[in-house]
Design a protein around this nucleic acid. Structure first.
Lengths: 214, 214
DNA sequence: AATATTAGTGTCGTTACAACACTATGTCAA
DNA sequence: TTGACATAGTGTTGTAACGACACTAATATT
Protein backbone atom coordinates (compact mmCIF):
# COMPACT_ATOMS: atom_id res chain seq x y z
CA UNK A 1 0.00 0.00 0.00
CA UNK A 2 1.20 3.48 -0.78
CA UNK A 3 1.01 5.94 2.10
CA UNK A 4 -1.91 7.73 0.47
CA UNK A 5 -3.84 4.48 0.52
CA UNK A 6 -3.10 3.81 4.16
CA UNK A 7 -6.38 4.40 5.86
CA UNK A 8 -6.30 5.73 9.38
CA UNK A 9 -8.92 7.03 11.76
CA UNK A 10 -8.18 9.59 14.37
CA UNK A 11 -10.23 11.31 17.02
CA UNK A 12 -9.75 14.97 17.87
CA UNK A 13 -11.20 16.97 20.71
CA UNK A 14 -12.07 20.65 20.91
CA UNK A 15 -11.99 21.30 24.64
CA UNK A 16 -13.75 24.52 25.59
CA UNK A 17 -13.66 26.33 28.86
CA UNK A 18 -14.48 29.78 30.14
CA UNK A 19 -11.33 31.50 31.32
CA UNK A 20 -10.67 35.18 31.90
CA UNK A 21 -14.23 35.92 30.85
CA UNK A 22 -13.53 34.51 27.42
CA UNK A 23 -14.31 31.30 25.63
CA UNK A 24 -11.03 29.47 25.24
CA UNK A 25 -9.76 26.28 23.59
CA UNK A 26 -6.97 23.96 24.71
CA UNK A 27 -4.30 23.25 22.08
CA UNK A 28 -1.10 21.25 21.88
CA UNK A 29 2.13 22.64 20.40
CA UNK A 30 3.71 21.18 17.29
CA UNK A 31 7.46 21.14 16.61
CA UNK A 32 7.14 23.69 13.85
CA UNK A 33 5.57 26.40 15.96
CA UNK A 34 2.03 25.54 14.95
CA UNK A 35 -0.67 24.04 17.12
CA UNK A 36 -3.12 21.15 16.94
CA UNK A 37 -6.13 19.76 18.72
CA UNK A 38 -5.51 17.06 21.31
CA UNK A 39 -6.22 13.68 19.74
CA UNK A 40 -4.68 10.95 17.64
CA UNK A 41 -5.10 7.57 16.02
CA UNK A 42 -7.82 5.22 17.10
CA UNK A 43 -6.72 1.79 18.30
CA UNK A 44 -8.36 -1.18 16.61
CA UNK A 45 -10.22 -2.46 19.65
CA UNK A 46 -11.26 0.88 21.05
CA UNK A 47 -14.52 2.78 20.94
CA UNK A 48 -14.43 6.14 19.19
CA UNK A 49 -15.52 8.02 22.26
CA UNK A 50 -13.02 6.19 24.48
CA UNK A 51 -10.31 7.01 22.01
CA UNK A 52 -11.16 10.69 22.20
CA UNK A 53 -11.21 10.66 25.99
CA UNK A 54 -8.03 8.67 26.27
CA UNK A 55 -6.00 10.90 24.00
CA UNK A 56 -7.33 13.89 25.86
CA UNK A 57 -6.24 12.45 29.17
CA UNK A 58 -2.84 11.29 27.99
CA UNK A 59 -1.98 14.53 26.27
CA UNK A 60 -3.49 16.98 28.73
CA UNK A 61 -4.31 15.13 31.93
CA UNK A 62 -7.91 16.27 31.65
CA UNK A 63 -10.66 13.82 32.63
CA UNK A 64 -14.32 13.92 33.51
CA UNK A 65 -15.41 16.31 30.78
CA UNK A 66 -18.72 16.49 28.98
CA UNK A 67 -18.11 15.04 25.50
CA UNK A 68 -20.22 15.09 22.36
CA UNK A 69 -19.51 13.98 18.82
CA UNK A 70 -19.26 16.92 16.45
CA UNK A 71 -18.63 15.81 12.88
CA UNK A 72 -16.43 13.50 10.84
CA UNK A 73 -13.91 15.10 8.53
CA UNK A 74 -12.65 12.93 5.70
CA UNK A 75 -11.80 14.97 2.65
CA UNK A 76 -8.98 13.19 0.77
CA UNK A 77 -5.93 15.40 0.90
CA UNK A 78 -6.66 16.89 4.28
CA UNK A 79 -3.54 15.10 5.51
CA UNK A 80 -0.35 15.31 3.42
CA UNK A 81 0.89 11.73 3.73
CA UNK A 82 -2.03 9.46 4.46
CA UNK A 83 -5.75 9.08 4.07
CA UNK A 84 -6.88 10.30 7.46
CA UNK A 85 -10.46 10.39 8.61
CA UNK A 86 -10.97 12.36 11.81
CA UNK A 87 -13.95 11.94 14.04
CA UNK A 88 -14.12 15.24 15.88
CA UNK A 89 -15.60 15.73 19.34
CA UNK A 90 -16.09 18.76 21.47
CA UNK A 91 -15.76 18.80 25.22
CA UNK A 92 -16.84 21.22 27.92
CA UNK A 93 -15.58 21.56 31.44
CA UNK A 94 -15.51 24.11 34.23
CA UNK A 95 -12.29 26.03 34.56
CA UNK A 96 -11.89 24.94 38.19
CA UNK A 97 -11.75 21.30 37.20
CA UNK A 98 -9.07 21.94 34.61
CA UNK A 99 -6.65 23.87 36.76
CA UNK A 100 -6.36 20.76 38.89
CA UNK A 101 -5.81 18.29 36.13
CA UNK A 102 -3.60 19.91 33.53
CA UNK A 103 -0.51 17.99 34.32
CA UNK A 104 1.60 18.16 31.20
CA UNK A 105 1.34 21.91 31.10
CA UNK A 106 4.24 22.48 28.76
CA UNK A 107 3.38 22.01 25.16
CA UNK A 108 -0.17 22.96 26.05
CA UNK A 109 -1.90 26.29 26.08
CA UNK A 110 -5.28 27.95 26.10
CA UNK A 111 -6.33 30.29 23.31
CA UNK A 112 -9.25 32.63 23.10
CA UNK A 113 -11.58 31.50 20.34
CA UNK A 114 -11.14 34.90 18.73
CA UNK A 115 -7.33 34.73 18.69
CA UNK A 116 -6.31 31.30 17.46
CA UNK A 117 -2.73 30.50 16.44
CA UNK A 118 -1.82 28.75 13.15
CA UNK A 119 -3.34 25.30 13.26
CA UNK A 120 -2.51 21.93 11.70
CA UNK A 121 -4.58 20.41 8.89
CA UNK A 122 -8.18 21.57 8.96
CA UNK A 123 -8.24 21.99 12.73
CA UNK A 124 -9.28 25.61 12.34
CA UNK A 125 -12.42 24.43 10.52
CA UNK A 126 -13.11 21.90 13.24
CA UNK A 127 -12.88 24.55 15.94
CA UNK A 128 -15.10 26.90 13.95
CA UNK A 129 -17.76 24.23 13.60
CA UNK A 130 -17.55 23.34 17.27
CA UNK A 131 -17.95 26.99 18.24
CA UNK A 132 -20.99 27.39 16.00
CA UNK A 133 -22.58 24.25 17.44
CA UNK A 134 -21.94 25.36 20.99
CA UNK A 135 -23.50 28.78 20.42
CA UNK A 136 -26.53 27.20 18.76
CA UNK A 137 -27.04 24.66 21.53
CA UNK A 138 -26.93 27.37 24.13
CA UNK A 139 -30.28 28.59 22.86
CA UNK A 140 -32.24 25.36 23.15
CA UNK A 141 -30.42 23.15 25.65
CA UNK A 142 -28.95 23.37 29.12
CA UNK A 143 -25.43 22.82 27.78
CA UNK A 144 -24.05 25.91 29.53
CA UNK A 145 -24.32 24.07 32.84
CA UNK A 146 -21.39 21.91 31.71
CA UNK A 147 -19.14 24.92 32.25
CA UNK A 148 -20.21 25.25 35.87
CA UNK A 149 -18.67 23.59 38.92
CA UNK A 150 -20.87 21.55 41.20
CA UNK A 151 -22.20 24.64 42.97
CA UNK A 152 -22.40 28.06 41.47
CA UNK A 153 -24.19 31.35 41.73
CA UNK A 154 -26.73 32.61 39.23
CA UNK A 155 -24.48 35.57 38.53
CA UNK A 156 -21.67 33.21 37.55
CA UNK A 157 -24.00 31.32 35.24
CA UNK A 158 -25.20 34.55 33.68
CA UNK A 159 -21.62 35.55 33.07
CA UNK A 160 -21.03 32.29 31.18
CA UNK A 161 -23.98 33.00 28.91
CA UNK A 162 -22.82 36.54 28.35
CA UNK A 163 -19.32 35.39 27.50
CA UNK A 164 -20.43 32.87 24.88
CA UNK A 165 -23.11 35.07 23.38
CA UNK A 166 -20.91 38.15 23.51
CA UNK A 167 -23.73 40.30 24.81
CA UNK A 168 -25.04 41.55 28.13
CA UNK A 169 -28.22 40.04 29.52
CA UNK A 170 -30.85 41.52 31.82
CA UNK A 171 -30.41 40.13 35.29
CA UNK A 172 -34.06 39.72 36.24
CA UNK A 173 -35.09 38.19 32.94
CA UNK A 174 -32.13 35.84 32.96
CA UNK A 175 -32.98 34.56 36.43
CA UNK A 176 -36.61 34.07 35.53
CA UNK A 177 -35.71 32.14 32.40
CA UNK A 178 -33.06 29.93 33.89
CA UNK A 179 -35.12 29.05 36.94
CA UNK A 180 -38.16 28.36 34.78
CA UNK A 181 -36.16 25.67 32.93
CA UNK A 182 -36.54 23.68 36.11
CA UNK A 183 -33.12 22.07 36.10
CA UNK A 184 -31.59 24.18 38.84
CA UNK A 185 -31.91 23.63 42.53
CA UNK A 186 -31.12 26.14 45.23
CA UNK A 187 -28.85 24.86 47.99
CA UNK A 188 -28.83 26.24 51.50
CA UNK A 189 -25.28 27.47 51.07
CA UNK A 190 -24.04 30.91 50.27
CA UNK A 191 -21.01 32.08 48.39
CA UNK A 192 -19.23 34.60 50.61
CA UNK A 193 -16.41 36.57 49.11
CA UNK A 194 -15.69 40.25 48.74
CA UNK A 195 -17.31 43.13 50.50
CA UNK A 196 -20.87 42.64 49.41
CA UNK A 197 -23.97 40.62 49.98
CA UNK A 198 -23.30 36.85 49.61
CA UNK A 199 -24.96 34.96 46.78
CA UNK A 200 -27.03 31.81 47.03
CA UNK A 201 -25.39 28.72 45.54
CA UNK A 202 -27.33 26.56 43.11
CA UNK A 203 -26.63 23.15 41.63
CA UNK A 204 -27.79 21.31 38.51
CA UNK A 205 -30.53 18.77 39.19
CA UNK A 206 -29.00 16.33 36.66
CA UNK A 207 -25.37 17.42 36.46
CA UNK A 208 -24.11 15.13 33.69
CA UNK A 209 -27.12 15.55 31.45
CA UNK A 210 -27.84 18.17 28.83
CA UNK A 211 -31.57 18.68 28.39
CA UNK A 212 -33.62 20.33 25.69
CA UNK A 213 -35.73 23.23 26.81
CA UNK A 214 -39.19 24.33 25.68
CA UNK B 1 -3.54 -8.46 10.47
CA UNK B 2 -6.38 -10.47 11.91
CA UNK B 3 -9.80 -9.68 10.48
CA UNK B 4 -10.77 -7.93 13.68
CA UNK B 5 -7.88 -5.58 13.19
CA UNK B 6 -8.74 -4.80 9.60
CA UNK B 7 -10.00 -1.30 9.73
CA UNK B 8 -12.65 -0.29 7.26
CA UNK B 9 -14.79 2.78 6.81
CA UNK B 10 -18.21 2.64 5.29
CA UNK B 11 -20.86 5.21 4.55
CA UNK B 12 -24.55 4.46 5.01
CA UNK B 13 -27.54 6.50 3.97
CA UNK B 14 -30.98 6.77 5.54
CA UNK B 15 -33.10 7.95 2.62
CA UNK B 16 -36.44 9.37 3.75
CA UNK B 17 -39.43 10.20 1.67
CA UNK B 18 -43.11 10.83 2.23
CA UNK B 19 -45.15 8.10 0.62
CA UNK B 20 -48.74 7.12 1.22
CA UNK B 21 -49.01 9.86 3.83
CA UNK B 22 -46.30 8.18 5.87
CA UNK B 23 -42.63 8.79 6.49
CA UNK B 24 -40.81 5.93 4.80
CA UNK B 25 -37.22 4.70 4.47
CA UNK B 26 -35.55 2.94 1.54
CA UNK B 27 -33.83 -0.34 2.39
CA UNK B 28 -31.91 -3.02 0.50
CA UNK B 29 -32.57 -6.73 0.95
CA UNK B 30 -29.97 -9.10 2.38
CA UNK B 31 -29.66 -12.76 1.41
CA UNK B 32 -30.84 -13.92 4.81
CA UNK B 33 -34.19 -12.16 4.70
CA UNK B 34 -32.99 -9.14 6.63
CA UNK B 35 -32.53 -5.62 5.35
CA UNK B 36 -29.81 -2.99 5.42
CA UNK B 37 -29.26 0.66 4.64
CA UNK B 38 -27.86 1.51 1.21
CA UNK B 39 -24.13 2.14 1.55
CA UNK B 40 -20.77 0.41 1.65
CA UNK B 41 -17.03 0.75 1.90
CA UNK B 42 -15.33 4.05 1.25
CA UNK B 43 -12.67 4.07 -1.48
CA UNK B 44 -9.28 5.44 -0.49
CA UNK B 45 -9.36 8.48 -2.74
CA UNK B 46 -12.98 9.38 -2.25
CA UNK B 47 -14.67 12.00 -0.14
CA UNK B 48 -17.03 10.71 2.53
CA UNK B 49 -20.01 12.53 1.10
CA UNK B 50 -19.24 11.36 -2.43
CA UNK B 51 -18.97 7.83 -1.17
CA UNK B 52 -22.42 8.05 0.38
CA UNK B 53 -23.95 9.51 -2.78
CA UNK B 54 -22.22 7.06 -5.03
CA UNK B 55 -23.34 3.97 -3.12
CA UNK B 56 -26.83 5.38 -3.03
CA UNK B 57 -26.87 5.85 -6.77
CA UNK B 58 -25.32 2.49 -7.60
CA UNK B 59 -27.58 0.53 -5.31
CA UNK B 60 -30.82 2.41 -5.84
CA UNK B 61 -30.46 4.66 -8.88
CA UNK B 62 -31.38 7.64 -6.76
CA UNK B 63 -29.56 10.92 -7.38
CA UNK B 64 -30.01 14.58 -6.59
CA UNK B 65 -31.08 14.16 -2.98
CA UNK B 66 -30.50 16.50 -0.06
CA UNK B 67 -27.76 14.90 2.05
CA UNK B 68 -26.52 15.67 5.54
CA UNK B 69 -24.06 13.90 7.80
CA UNK B 70 -25.78 12.30 10.78
CA UNK B 71 -23.30 10.58 13.08
CA UNK B 72 -20.35 8.22 13.04
CA UNK B 73 -20.86 4.78 14.54
CA UNK B 74 -17.73 2.96 15.57
CA UNK B 75 -18.34 0.70 18.53
CA UNK B 76 -15.95 -2.28 18.30
CA UNK B 77 -18.01 -5.39 17.76
CA UNK B 78 -20.75 -3.71 15.79
CA UNK B 79 -19.61 -5.80 12.84
CA UNK B 80 -18.92 -9.53 13.37
CA UNK B 81 -15.77 -9.95 11.28
CA UNK B 82 -14.04 -6.61 11.02
CA UNK B 83 -13.54 -3.29 12.70
CA UNK B 84 -16.04 -1.24 10.79
CA UNK B 85 -16.59 2.46 11.33
CA UNK B 86 -19.70 3.77 9.58
CA UNK B 87 -20.23 7.40 8.78
CA UNK B 88 -24.01 7.67 8.55
CA UNK B 89 -25.86 10.22 6.45
CA UNK B 90 -29.50 10.96 5.97
CA UNK B 91 -31.08 12.03 2.73
CA UNK B 92 -34.40 13.59 1.83
CA UNK B 93 -36.13 13.69 -1.50
CA UNK B 94 -39.60 14.24 -2.90
CA UNK B 95 -41.50 11.10 -3.76
CA UNK B 96 -41.99 12.25 -7.38
CA UNK B 97 -38.26 12.36 -7.97
CA UNK B 98 -37.78 8.84 -6.63
CA UNK B 99 -40.44 7.10 -8.65
CA UNK B 100 -38.47 8.13 -11.74
CA UNK B 101 -35.09 7.02 -10.56
CA UNK B 102 -35.49 3.77 -8.69
CA UNK B 103 -34.02 1.56 -11.33
CA UNK B 104 -32.90 -1.54 -9.49
CA UNK B 105 -36.30 -1.95 -7.92
CA UNK B 106 -35.85 -5.57 -6.91
CA UNK B 107 -33.95 -6.04 -3.76
CA UNK B 108 -35.18 -2.61 -2.68
CA UNK B 109 -38.24 -1.58 -0.78
CA UNK B 110 -39.77 1.24 1.18
CA UNK B 111 -40.77 0.79 4.81
CA UNK B 112 -42.83 3.00 7.05
CA UNK B 113 -40.67 4.31 9.86
CA UNK B 114 -43.11 2.73 12.30
CA UNK B 115 -42.92 -0.74 10.74
CA UNK B 116 -39.30 -1.56 10.07
CA UNK B 117 -38.15 -5.09 9.18
CA UNK B 118 -35.20 -6.84 10.90
CA UNK B 119 -32.09 -4.82 10.14
CA UNK B 120 -28.38 -5.60 9.84
CA UNK B 121 -25.85 -4.49 12.45
CA UNK B 122 -26.95 -1.36 14.29
CA UNK B 123 -28.86 0.02 11.32
CA UNK B 124 -32.01 0.22 13.42
CA UNK B 125 -30.20 2.62 15.77
CA UNK B 126 -29.01 4.67 12.84
CA UNK B 127 -32.52 5.02 11.47
CA UNK B 128 -33.86 5.93 14.90
CA UNK B 129 -31.28 8.67 15.28
CA UNK B 130 -31.96 9.99 11.78
CA UNK B 131 -35.68 10.10 12.51
CA UNK B 132 -35.15 11.99 15.74
CA UNK B 133 -32.88 14.49 14.02
CA UNK B 134 -35.35 15.03 11.21
CA UNK B 135 -38.22 15.68 13.58
CA UNK B 136 -36.11 18.11 15.60
CA UNK B 137 -34.90 20.01 12.55
CA UNK B 138 -38.45 20.43 11.34
CA UNK B 139 -39.03 22.83 14.21
CA UNK B 140 -36.20 25.26 13.55
CA UNK B 141 -35.20 24.88 9.89
CA UNK B 142 -36.83 24.77 6.48
CA UNK B 143 -35.78 21.16 5.98
CA UNK B 144 -39.33 20.03 5.13
CA UNK B 145 -39.00 21.78 1.77
CA UNK B 146 -36.57 19.05 0.74
CA UNK B 147 -39.53 16.69 0.52
CA UNK B 148 -41.31 18.95 -1.97
CA UNK B 149 -41.06 18.92 -5.76
CA UNK B 150 -40.11 22.12 -7.55
CA UNK B 151 -43.65 23.48 -7.35
CA UNK B 152 -46.16 22.58 -4.75
CA UNK B 153 -49.28 23.79 -3.00
CA UNK B 154 -49.38 24.97 0.59
CA UNK B 155 -51.82 22.19 1.38
CA UNK B 156 -49.28 19.63 0.17
CA UNK B 157 -46.58 21.21 2.35
CA UNK B 158 -48.90 21.22 5.33
CA UNK B 159 -49.58 17.54 4.78
CA UNK B 160 -45.83 16.83 4.90
CA UNK B 161 -45.54 18.58 8.25
CA UNK B 162 -48.56 16.74 9.58
CA UNK B 163 -47.17 13.40 8.45
CA UNK B 164 -43.80 13.86 10.13
CA UNK B 165 -45.19 15.40 13.29
CA UNK B 166 -48.07 12.93 13.46
CA UNK B 167 -50.55 15.66 14.30
CA UNK B 168 -53.04 17.88 12.51
CA UNK B 169 -52.20 21.56 12.09
CA UNK B 170 -54.45 24.57 11.77
CA UNK B 171 -54.63 25.69 8.16
CA UNK B 172 -54.62 29.45 8.71
CA UNK B 173 -51.87 29.43 11.30
CA UNK B 174 -49.75 27.10 9.18
CA UNK B 175 -50.00 29.36 6.16
CA UNK B 176 -49.19 32.44 8.17
CA UNK B 177 -46.14 30.77 9.73
CA UNK B 178 -44.72 29.25 6.58
CA UNK B 179 -45.17 32.41 4.54
CA UNK B 180 -43.64 34.51 7.31
CA UNK B 181 -40.46 32.41 7.04
CA UNK B 182 -39.92 34.26 3.79
CA UNK B 183 -38.47 31.37 1.83
CA UNK B 184 -41.52 30.64 -0.30
CA UNK B 185 -42.50 32.38 -3.47
CA UNK B 186 -45.91 32.26 -5.11
CA UNK B 187 -45.87 31.38 -8.79
CA UNK B 188 -48.55 32.44 -11.22
CA UNK B 189 -49.52 28.84 -11.83
CA UNK B 190 -52.36 26.83 -10.36
CA UNK B 191 -52.65 23.18 -9.57
CA UNK B 192 -55.89 21.94 -11.17
CA UNK B 193 -57.10 18.49 -10.31
CA UNK B 194 -60.33 17.13 -8.96
CA UNK B 195 -63.66 18.84 -8.74
CA UNK B 196 -62.74 21.75 -6.57
CA UNK B 197 -61.08 25.13 -6.54
CA UNK B 198 -57.50 24.98 -7.88
CA UNK B 199 -54.62 25.78 -5.57
CA UNK B 200 -51.84 28.27 -6.13
CA UNK B 201 -48.42 26.71 -6.69
CA UNK B 202 -45.44 27.93 -4.68
CA UNK B 203 -41.74 27.29 -5.00
CA UNK B 204 -38.78 27.51 -2.63
CA UNK B 205 -36.73 30.68 -3.03
CA UNK B 206 -33.48 28.75 -2.45
CA UNK B 207 -34.39 25.16 -3.33
CA UNK B 208 -31.20 23.35 -2.35
CA UNK B 209 -30.65 25.25 0.86
CA UNK B 210 -31.96 24.50 4.33
CA UNK B 211 -32.25 27.68 6.39
CA UNK B 212 -32.66 28.29 10.08
CA UNK B 213 -35.76 30.16 11.10
CA UNK B 214 -36.18 32.72 13.85
C1' DA C 1 -21.36 54.45 61.22
C1' DA C 2 -20.74 55.40 56.53
C1' DT C 3 -19.45 53.53 52.12
C1' DA C 4 -18.82 50.38 48.52
C1' DT C 5 -20.23 46.32 46.06
C1' DT C 6 -22.82 42.71 44.39
C1' DA C 7 -27.40 39.96 45.29
C1' DG C 8 -31.98 39.79 44.72
C1' DT C 9 -36.80 41.03 43.43
C1' DG C 10 -41.98 42.55 40.34
C1' DT C 11 -44.74 45.12 37.00
C1' DC C 12 -46.28 46.55 32.71
C1' DG C 13 -46.43 47.04 27.82
C1' DT C 14 -45.65 44.54 23.52
C1' DT C 15 -45.39 40.77 20.70
C1' DA C 16 -45.89 36.17 19.20
C1' DC C 17 -48.99 32.30 19.00
C1' DA C 18 -53.23 29.47 19.23
C1' DA C 19 -58.07 29.01 18.59
C1' DC C 20 -61.64 29.62 15.64
C1' DA C 21 -65.69 29.62 10.74
C1' DC C 22 -66.91 31.27 6.72
C1' DT C 23 -66.51 32.60 1.63
C1' DA C 24 -64.34 31.50 -3.04
C1' DT C 25 -63.67 28.83 -7.10
C1' DG C 26 -63.38 25.19 -9.56
C1' DT C 27 -65.46 20.20 -11.40
C1' DC C 28 -69.03 17.13 -12.26
C1' DA C 29 -73.51 15.24 -12.74
C1' DA C 30 -78.30 15.73 -13.25
C1' DT D 1 -77.64 25.59 -16.69
C1' DT D 2 -77.82 24.84 -12.33
C1' DG D 3 -77.02 22.77 -8.08
C1' DA D 4 -74.02 19.81 -5.27
C1' DC D 5 -69.56 18.83 -3.88
C1' DA D 6 -64.70 19.44 -2.60
C1' DT D 7 -60.73 21.80 -1.52
C1' DA D 8 -58.56 26.72 -1.47
C1' DG D 9 -58.14 30.73 0.81
C1' DT D 10 -58.72 34.44 4.28
C1' DG D 11 -58.79 37.87 9.78
C1' DT D 12 -59.79 38.64 14.40
C1' DT D 13 -59.43 38.08 19.13
C1' DG D 14 -57.85 36.26 23.49
C1' DT D 15 -53.77 34.55 25.90
C1' DA D 16 -49.26 33.56 27.12
C1' DA D 17 -44.37 34.54 26.64
C1' DC D 18 -40.78 38.01 26.55
C1' DG D 19 -38.26 42.29 27.09
C1' DA D 20 -37.55 46.67 29.29
C1' DC D 21 -36.97 48.75 33.43
C1' DA D 22 -35.01 50.63 39.17
C1' DC D 23 -34.85 49.96 43.59
C1' DT D 24 -33.88 47.44 48.23
C1' DA D 25 -30.91 43.83 50.82
C1' DA D 26 -26.85 42.00 52.83
C1' DT D 27 -22.28 41.78 53.60
C1' DA D 28 -17.06 43.61 54.09
C1' DT D 29 -14.11 47.40 54.69
C1' DT D 30 -12.69 51.74 56.47
Amino acid sequence: MSPQNTLAISTDVVLFSIRNDRLEVLLAALDNGGWRLPGGGMAADEDLESSALQHLEQQTGVTGVYLEQLYTFGRPGRHPTQRLVSVAYYALAPDEQLRLRERQADGLDWFAITRLPPLALDHADIIAMAHKRLAAKLAYTTIALQFMPERFTLSALQSVYETILGAALDKRNFRKRVLAMGCLEATSELDRHGNHRPARLYRARTPGKVEFIK
